[in-house]
């Protein structure tokens, strides 16, 4: 689709589904597409009790398609040497279940889908591939037939506009939820602290390494014994991820990379449409039905308002209660920190 054609098309709202129940909640709240993954290390939200079996995915696809909603399956970690079959089988299962697209970042997975399933499923390039230049995106499009790229959360709106003018594939931009400020797929902070990799094992700050300890001064959030942050009694908290930790450096204690905040680009929907973005993505497969229902419903109203020529400013107030650390940011879209 050309740049001007992308700007005329309705934007697609892509919503998280960590379990069959949240898939149904997202569909009923107005998602155009839901994304989900299998209950193993092939997907980057490999948390206890989360995700889908093959049977659950097939049933979820039937339900979603029955409501006119697409299902995108994230097989988005990097396959390990000698274990690539696990990732290939995950892709085969997703196709057999009727998935509309596979979201992948590993070239072995992309190659498998492009070679064996090119006619039956779309390929979307995962944010884990960290493709943010026209050259990188063209490589994935020409080599594997990638139709959409999920763009990293480190680009400003003008940069996305320039990118879209230089490529012929769709772009999908995160608009709400957890904010990764690193080069995704290549971050080793969590691996350094816990020995487990978000890129290979699918877990950034794996829960078995996380602890919250209360004392008279408040709460300490720890990762593998490292104190990531301390919160006074009553102060809003966040996940103990290293990129959002408070560090002592240069004689000062501060958040070196990013504060514990949630991304909320609800007020930038119109700008992202003008930048040629095809799909808006809500993060949060690890969150529950309450979050999914509230956030999807709010963004459904906001996207519809923008498509009808209105604005979506009120969304910031509606969603403040769902935010990590009780705060929200437009991240790099309104670049002030890089």
């Amino acid at each position: 689709m050309s740049g001007p054609a992308r700007m005329e098309a309705r934007m697609e709202l892509v919503c998280p589904a960590g379990t069959p129940a949240t898939l149904r909640a997202a569909v009923e709240a107005g998602a155009d597409a839901v994304y989900c993954g299998f209950r193993d290390e092939t997907n980057a939200r490999n948390f206890p009790g989360l995700n889908f079996s093959g049977e659950e995915l097939a049933e979820g696809v039937r339900f979603a398609h029955g409501h006119g909603t697409k299902v995108l399956v994230a097989i988005n970690t990097f396959a390990r040497v000698g274990e690539v079959d696990r990732w290939r089988k995950a892709a085969d299962t997703a196709v057999a279940c009727g998935a509309d697209a596979i979201i992948a970042g590993d070239i072995a997975v992309l190659d498998h889908v492009a070679t064996n399933h090119r006619d039956s499923v779309r390929l979307h390039l995962s944010v884990q591939a960290a493709a943010s230049t026209p050259e990188a995106i063209r490589f994935y499009a020409e080599t594997f037939g990638v139709r959409r790229v999920v763009i990293p959360r480190v680009l400003s709106v003008p940069e996305i506009t320039a990118l879209n003018k230089a490529i012929d594939v769709e772009t999908e931009a995160f608009v709400y939820g957890g904010l990764c400020v690193m080069v995704e797929g290549r971050c080793y902070l969590s691996s350094y602290a816990t020995g487990k990799s978000p890129n290979l094992n699918g877990v950034c700050s794996p829960p078995e390494a996380v602890s919250y300890d209360e004392d008279d001064k408040g709460m300490a959030a720890r990762l593998s014994g490292f104190t990531i942050d301390r919160y006074a009694p009553g102060e809003p908290t966040g996940y103990p991820t290293l990129c959002k930790g408070r560090f002592n450096a240069g004689g000062k204690t501060s958040y070196l990379f990013e504060e514990p905040v949630s991304l909320n680009a609800g007020s930038l929907i119109e700008g992202l449409k003008k930048a040629g973005v095809t799909a808006l993505k809500i993060e949060g497969r690890q969150r529950g039905k309450g979050y999914v229902s509230e956030v999807v419903r709010a963004f459904r109203r906001a996207v519809d308002a923008v498509e009808a020529g209105g604005d979506a400013v009120e969304i910031d107030r509606i969603l403040a209660g769902q935010s990590e650390g009780g705060r929200q940011t437009a991240g790099a879209y309104r670049k002030i920190w890089r």
Binding site: G18, P48, G49, P207, Y212, P233, R287, G325, G326
Partner: peptide, 28 residues
């Protein structure tokens, strides 16, 4: 939403975080 209640300090958890997540996701 359990995470929202936790972020806003309405509920508190301690102990094995992975067991809390498994229970939360099973109940959800």
């Amino acid at each position: 939403d359990g995470d929202a209640l936790f972020f806003n300090r309405v509920i508190a958890i301690s102990g094995r975080t992975e067991a809390v997540l498994a229970l939360r996701n099973a109940i959800e």
